[in-house]
Design a binder for these strands. Structure first.
Length: 570
DNA sequence: CGCATCGCTTGTATAAGCGATGCGGTGCTATACT
């Protein structure tokens, strides 16, 4: 792979540039786009983390035309699939694409598969649920796909573990398709999320292409409230005062209706948006926002993917988000035109309650037990559909339980996608191990909520904190967050020493240092913030440690490796 | 985990306090019924 002669590499780049220009009309490719395309064309598994608008889709669209088979694109929303297909160039000689999903009639589905198999369609868009169907895998295998793309790959990590478990079974699907190269695309993923994506998709020594996360045009601001009434009042005032258009993210459907009504009563064009609305209503709100007819959309997390709007001036959060990954993705929807925008978070410490409730809920031991027993009752490997019939459980619950059991190495999935017990593991032990896995996952998820709160409560530069979370070192002050402003107003120059207390041991644990903690085990230092460090532990997730406490007990945290040793991205 | 709501209680209220209970977010797909 790296033994390529330079001439071959140059020829490859030339063909990519030529295809981009002739087929798509793109005369320039960014260097990082071209690099990722070359990896894809060479058949290497590739993870691309690039901001929205940087041309991620091109990374598979262009090489697809130079590859010997169709390209499978897994996309989480049917609306995104439609957008992607509509965005392809039209006209004679342009590549064709189909989406196979539950909207299609039997005849349309048949026509789509014929187009994929006879080479008439270069791209085939699918939800992860489609790939759980034997018929779909059989059709795709016949078509000999040359590349397997997972778009919005953060969904693997954020949805796969509970909400849409078929995301965790994509690795099985890839295997059954003859293991084409895998390309994962996402705009937002902290290092542990990248690792989760790579592991869950079964990627093989993937190349990573990660561009910078900083969005200097977005001002960062946080307000802490003790009373809920006061918070609500302040949010309404702020949303009314800011330049439009903007998005308010609320924690519940009921709150989206509340804020939309309050803003409308002030004469603003404000709309609520959440998954409890009828499809037609959601489409209307979405379209009106894109068309510039709406001042403020007040939404749950349902509003986001597929919002391609340059001029959003603010994103205001009415409650603590569930993770900084989600937060950064949501605030990244403002200021895409590069002009100043603002991300304001209004929170109460009590907000962590609901986020903890949402975090890492796993099926109970009774559900897992029912699935384990059903697996053990079969002499041969058994398919998920049959397990569903045996147990009477829903498809999603059976899949989640099987995923959990597989993670706990209590069951294994064979080449046909069927499941059998792992050797030497009885049902009781299997349930126990699955419970341990679920608890470990829940600890990790809850520590992500803790990090969101830590961001909200940090006494240091907010940009430095956020970028540190995404693995980027940043020399504060940014001069564009509320903390930096406050320091400046106090008369300091905003430099590090007068921003906050700096412990004499600052620097003893550089970012990236491998450490071992007496109680929490192995971890990696993610950031240091004057008098404290944040460590990501393999087993318990994120923890913030005070340098003073570490100095008092010097056996608590031992350094086991230098920065940049293991776990480095490139 | 936090909260809103309900129904029960009480030296019987045009009232308030209590504990129990249920709810809270993301989308696909298959299926039944107009």
């Amino acid at each position: 792979m790296t033994g390529d002669r330079p001439r071959t590499g140059a020829r490859r780049a030339g063909r990519l540039r030529q295809t981009a220009a002739e087929v798509f009309g793109w005369d320039e490719l960014r260097p990082e786009q071209l690099t990722a395309m070359e990896w894809v064309l060479q058949g290497q598994d590739t993870l691309v983390v690039m901001p929205t608008g940087a041309g991620k889709s091109a990374v598979y669209q262009v090489p697809a035309l130079l590859l010997p088979g169709p390209v499978v694109v897994v996309s989480p929303l049917l609306a995104l699939q439609r957008d992607q297909i509509a965005g392809l160039p039209g006209g004679e000689g342009s590549p064709r694409a189909v989406a196979v999903n539950s909207d299609l009639t039997a005849a349309e589905t048949e026509a789509a598969w014929e187009a994929v198999c006879d080479g008439g369609s270069t791209y085939v868009y699918l939800s992860p649920e489609q790939l759980a169907k034997d018929e779909v895998v059989r059709r795709l295998t016949d078509a000999r796909p040359a590349l397997f793309v997972v778009d919005e790959a953060q969904c693997v990590s954020s949805w796969g573990h509970d909400f849409r478990p078929d995301y965790l079974r994509l690795a099985q699907a890839v295997r059954r398709l003859g293991r084409p190269p895998v390309l994962a695309l996402t705009a937002t993923a902290a290092p542990p999320v990248r690792q989760d994506i790579v592991e869950r998709l079964g990627m093989d020594r993937p190349r990573h292409l990660v561009t910078g996360f900083d969005r200097p045009e977005i001002r960062l601001e946080v307000h802490r409230h003790l009373e809920d009434d006061e918070r609500r009042r302040r949010i309404v005032e702020r949303a009314a005062a800011e330049a439009k258009p903007g998005i308010v993210y609320a924690a519940t459907r009921k709150d989206t209706e509340f804020y939309a009504a309050e803003l409308a009563s002030l004469g603003l064009a404000a709309e609520a948006y959440h998954a409890g609305q009828r499809a037609a209503e959601r489409r209307r709100v979405h379209a009106a926002f894109l068309a510039g007819e709406t001042d403020v959309v007040v939404a749950t997390t349902a509003f986001g993917m597929g919002i391609d709007k340059e001029d959003v001036r603010f994103v205001l959060h009415a409650a603590l988000p569930g993770s900084l990954d989600a937060y950064y993705q949501e605030i990244g929807r403002c200021g895409r035109d590069g002009r100043p925008a603002v991300a304001v978070l209004h929170f109460r410490p009590e907000d962590t309650g609901m986020q903890a409730y949402f975090s890492g809920r796993a099926p109970g031991s009774d559900t897992v037990g029912a699935v384990v027993h059903a697996v053990h009752e079969h002499a041969n490997a058994v398919g998920l559909d049959e397990l569903r019939r045996d147990t009477g459980l829903s498809r999603a619950r059976v899949t989640t339980a099987v995923n959990l059991l597989q993670e706990a190495e209590a069951v294994v999935t064979d080449a046909s996608g069927a499941v059998r017990p792992a050797p030497d593991t009885g049902p009781d032990r299997a349930v126990e191990r699955a419970r341990d896995s679920a608890e470990a996952h829940q600890r990790m998820e809850r520590s992500r909520v803790d990090m969101a709160r830590a961001y909200a409560e940090t006494t240091g530069c907010r940009r430095r904190f956020l970028l540190g979370y995404f693995g980027e070192e940043y020399e504060a002050p940014c001069g564009n967050c509320d903390v930096c402003d406050a320091r400046e107003a106090e008369g300091g120059d905003g430099s590090r020493d007068d921003r906050q207390a700096v412990h004499p041991d600052a620097g003893a644990y550089p970012v990236g240092t491998a450490v071992r903690h007496g109680q929490w085990g192995r971890g990696t230092v993610l950031s240091e913030d004057g008098d404290r460090i944040t460590v990501l532990f393999d087993d318990v997730g994120y923890r913030t440690l005070s340098l003073q406490a570490l100095a008092d007990r010097d056996d608590l945290l031992t350094v086991t490796g230098e920065p940049g040793g293991e776990g480095a991205d490139h």
